[in-house]
Design a binder for these strands. Structure first.
Length: 716
DNA sequence: TTCCAACTGTTTTTT
DNA sequence: ACAGTTGGAA
């Protein structure tokens, strides 16, 4: 039995799984069996007696990855994986904070704010402090605050040299005070609080350090500064950290991920062994060759080359369309052809750089009656009606949650208007208490006092009724008592929302079953746990299994997935790499990694397409093939033309490509050359006479607007 | 309080 | 192009 775990591992995988108790970095290429190594390592540690399930700490980024790890581990070992410290960064931090909420300075039933809640809290703060939200846009402030927290910086530690930053710093401090007063915690705060808790409480830190002798980290390249510090603190001197990641798949720098953590890790943890998993079990050779050739253009990488024992397979198909419209119809035709060959639609993915590109594609698919599913978008717990319902539940759990109170005090409408609220807020402000507490003071007279008292009485009665009930019935009562059900029954478009509210009752029922099976570690209550679940897992936005459907998503969303066939669309300069990326430091390298991720999603067949023109922001834009296309070895590519009989049917927009740039004599699509920037192609134009400008996409100098009067352009 | 018109900002996204 | 937000009028 002991050997069966290790059977079928290749030498590198085996080496990684059976490493001794020391920190190690596993560079796991795309499709190299990363999750298998991670789960088998845990199983091996337990089975060989090197660790007990209690001594393992394994952390991922997404709930999906955590769940996958748990199920696979359950399949490898006959142990109860519940109770093990395996979860997301935020989930595990939350767990630790719940267990030690007193030491962390939090109420037992602290609530978690999701991004939207946080933004709401910031807007509320600005209003209360009379801050001009034009000068300090809430979104920007949110970004500032989260950025600071992710750097591990509290407001008083922020270095502010200019008045603007000082003001932001001040607002950051006020925001934290507000959260503390209300007993709520945002995502970044979960981690920072937990980090500070361990830093401050020596006994606690030592307890966990000696307990978790094995720390395993998935997708290490995506960790931010705070997450790294947190891991370092938790590891102490004794733990072995098993970090698995792929620097070539680092595509989240824009949200704070620091690939540099990988190099720091090697140094800080005295890593002796860097193991490279380079054998790919997913794709055919040509696809891997293309991916390798592309990523070699990046300067900063740890170095890795994927290979496969399979044959080279088919060439990569490249298609140039006249327009986005034609690109879409080409894809539809090819998808149908694949379908005829027997490829299930769910095995085909249609990828794009940005969400806006899905429109044309969806339109074409809809017209051709090809079933498809778009990933991304609103998730279950983010829906308006669900958020309203959750706000009632939050108030039952913690009446000081001003955000929740403001959300539903007049929803459904019960005659509490802006003026009543303002007087209530005035009392709360002057007394330094929450809105709920302000209401308890009963200082408001007349109608406002009566309606507000009626509201607090309503919540109190909900709390009473719910106290002894199972969770789903609590939700049901709340929905009735609050008037939400009646409200949506009367609304003409309310049917879907009612259905979602019913689904919330189901979700509560499902959650309660899960919850009761778990050994209740913290003595928290079901309701609080359910609310935590709602914030930390906004619902599946990925895994809605359904009928056979073509899979549409951004390249980012496709990370970690694989498909028999992949269509990669919109491979144009400005789109992919995105034009904004050129301005950011290492922006193009990150875009190239994104392209690398896209290519390596394909198992057997890869299509890459681009269009000479497409509608963008309501304007027709002309583009040229992405530089990434040119970075792929020509011998791996096969340029193809449209199949079938529609080939001759040209699209109406195609003719626009030859439109003259008024009276200037230059034409869109014309090859030109500039003394400084070199050769290029005119892709857009505007103005006439002395104001006439053309946009030129240069082969080496990027895309630029040039005034015809001054630029010494030559036909070429 | 509700509704509509004008206005805005459009890369990627998890927790 | 288009969706989401905001501000003013009814």
């Amino acid at each position: 039995m002991p050997t069966s775990l290790l059977k079928g591992l290749n030498p590198e995988q085996l080496a990684a799984v059976t490493l001794p108790h020391e920190s190690a970095l596993i560079l796991a290429g795309a499709g190299s069996g990363k999750t298998r190594v991670l789960t088998t390592r845990i199983a091996h540690l337990i089975q060989s007696g090197q660790a007990s399930p209690n001594g393992i700490f394994a952390v991922t980024f997404t709930n999906k990855a955590a769940k996958e790890m748990l199920t696979r581990l359950g399949a490898l070992l006959p142990i109860n994986t519940r109770g093990m410290w395996i979860g997301t960064f935020h989930g595990l931090a939350n767990r630790m904070l719940r267990a030690h909420h007193r030491e962390a300075g939090l109420p037992a039933l602290f609530q978690i704010l999701d991004s939207a809640d946080q933004l709401g809290a910031i807007k509320r703060l600005l209003k209360a402090l009379n801050v001009d939200d034009e000068k300090y846009p809430p979104k920007q402030l949110q970004h500032f605050i989260n950025g600071c927290k992710e750097e591990g910086l509290r407001a008083h530690l922020v270095e502010a040299f200019d008045p603007y930053t000082r003001k932001q710093q001040e607002l950051y401090a006020a925001y934290d005070e507000q959260c503390q007063r209300e007993g709520v915690v945002d995502f970044a705060e979960l981690l920072l609080r937990c980090y500070e808790l361990l830093l401050r409480e020596t006994a606690l830190r030592q307890h966990y350090q000696s307990r978790f002798r094995h720390i395993l980290v998935d997708e290490f390249q995506d960790t931010n500064h705070l997450q790294y510090q947190w891991l370092k603190l938790l590891a102490g001197e004794q733990a072995a950290v098993f970090a698995v990641g792929d620097d070539d798949q680092s595509i989240y720098a824009f949200r704070g991920a620091r690939v540099g953590n990988m190099a720091d890790f090697e140094r800080d943890f005295h890593v002796e062994k860097v193991i490279r998993l380079e054998q790919n079990y997913r794709s055919h050779g040509n696809i891997l060759d293309a991916a390798n050739a592309l990523i070699r253009h990046n300067q900063s990488r740890l170095g890795k080359n994927l290979w496969t024992a399979e044959g080279s397979g088919e060439p990569i198909r490249v298609f140039e369309a006249h327009s986005d419209y034609e690109e879409a119809s080409f894809i539809v035709d090819e998808v149908k052809a694949l379908q005829r060959e027997g490829v299930p639609l769910s095995g085909i993915a249609l990828l794009y750089r940005s969400n806006a590109q899905s429109r044309v594609l969806e339109h074409a698919l809809f017209n051709a009656a090809v079933p498809y599913r778009v990933y991304g978008g609103l998730r279950f717990f983010e829906r308006q009606e669900i958020k309203h319902a959750l706000a009632y539940l939050r108030l039952i759990g913690n009446s000081n949650d001003d955000g929740a109170l403001l959300r539903v005090i007049n929803f459904p409408t019960r005659g509490i208007g802006a003026r009543s609220l303002e007087s209530l807020q005035e009392i709360a402000r002057s007394e330094g208490v929450s809105l709920w507490q302000a209401a308890q003071l009963r200082r408001l007279s007349g109608k406002a006092g009566a309606t507000i008292s009626a509201f607090t009485a309503l919540i109190e009665s909900m709390r009473e009724v719910c106290a002894a009930l199972p969770l789903p019935e609590q939700v049901e009562h709340m929905l009735e008592l609050s008037g939400l059900v009646t409200h949506y029954k009367n609304e003409k478009e309310g049917a879907d929302r009612l259905e979602n509210l019913n689904e919330l009752i189901n979700a509560a029922a499902g959650f309660e079953i899960e919850y009761s099976q778990e050994e209740s570690e913290g003595a928290s209550n079901v309701l609080a746990a359910f609310l935590t679940h709602a914030s930390l897992e906004a619902g599946d936005n990925q895994a809605i299994a359904g009928q056979e459907a073509l899979q549409l998503m951004t390249v980012h969303a496709a990370k970690g997935l694989e498909f028999h066939a992949v269509f990669l669309s919109g491979l144009e300069e400005g789109l992919f790499p995105h034009e904004n990326a050129a301005r950011e430091r290492d922006g193009v390298e990150e875009e190239r990694r994104l392209m690398y991720v896209a290519i390596t999603r394909a198992r057997r067949r890869l299509y890459i397409s681009f269009a000479d023109s497409r509608m963008l922001h309501g304007q027709l834009r002309y583009g040229i093939a992405s530089r990434f296309l040119e970075e792929l070895p020509a011998q791996l590519l096969k340029r193809i033309n449209r199949t079938g009989s529609e080939q001759a049917m040209q699209q109406p927009t195609a003719g626009a490509a030859s439109a003259s740039t008024s009276d200037s004599g230059w034409q869109i699509g014309q090859a030109v050359s500039h003394p400084k920037f070199g050769p290029g192609i005119i892709i857009n134009s505007e103005g006439r006479g002395a104001d006439a400008r053309v946009q030129v996409s240069f082969s080496h100098a990027g895309v630029k607007w040039l005034a015809l009067e001054y630029a010494k352009l030559e036909a070429g």
